[in-house]
Simulated scan of single mutants.
Amino acid sequence: MNKDKVESLEQARAQIDTIDEALIELIAARQFYVDQAVRFKRTVQDVQSPERVDEVIKKVRSAAEAKGTDPDLVEQIYREMIQHFIRRELKEIRP
Rank of each mutant, 00 (worst) to 15 (best):
E10D: 15
K5R: 02
E75F: 08
R94N: 09
Q11E: 15
I86E: 06
R39Y: 08
D4R: 00
I19Q: 10
D46F: 00
R61Y: 01
A14Q: 11
Q83H: 13
D70Y: 05
R87F: 03
S49N: 01
K91G: 08
L9V: 14
V74K: 07
R39S: 10
E7W: 01
E51W: 00
K59G: 07
M81C: 08
Q83K: 14
A63Q: 08
A64E: 09
T69M: 08
K5G: 01
I24H: 04
R88I: 03
I77K: 10
R79M: 10
D17G: 04
G68F: 07
E80W: 06
V74N: 06
I93R: 06
Q31W: 08
K91H: 09
L9T: 11
R87N: 14
T18Q: 13
Q83M: 08
R39L: 14
V34K: 02
E89R: 05
R79P: 05
I57R: 02
D17E: 13
P71Q: 07
E55N: 10
H84R: 12
K91E: 10
E25H: 06
Q83A: 13
S8Y: 01
Y33F: 14
V34L: 04
Q45L: 04
Q45S: 11
F32K: 15
R42A: 07
V56M: 13
D54G: 13
Q11M: 08
I27V: 03
E89K: 06
G68L: 06
T43Q: 07
V44M: 02
V38A: 02
A28S: 14
E80N: 10
I77V: 15
L9E: 10
A12P: 04
I77F: 11
A37P: 02
V60C: 03
Q48G: 00
E51V: 00
D54W: 00
E75T: 08
E10W: 11
D35N: 15
I82F: 05
E10M: 12
R87H: 12
E65V: 12
K67H: 12
R42W: 06
D72V: 10
D20E: 07
L90E: 02
R79T: 10
I57A: 02
P95V: 11
L90C: 07
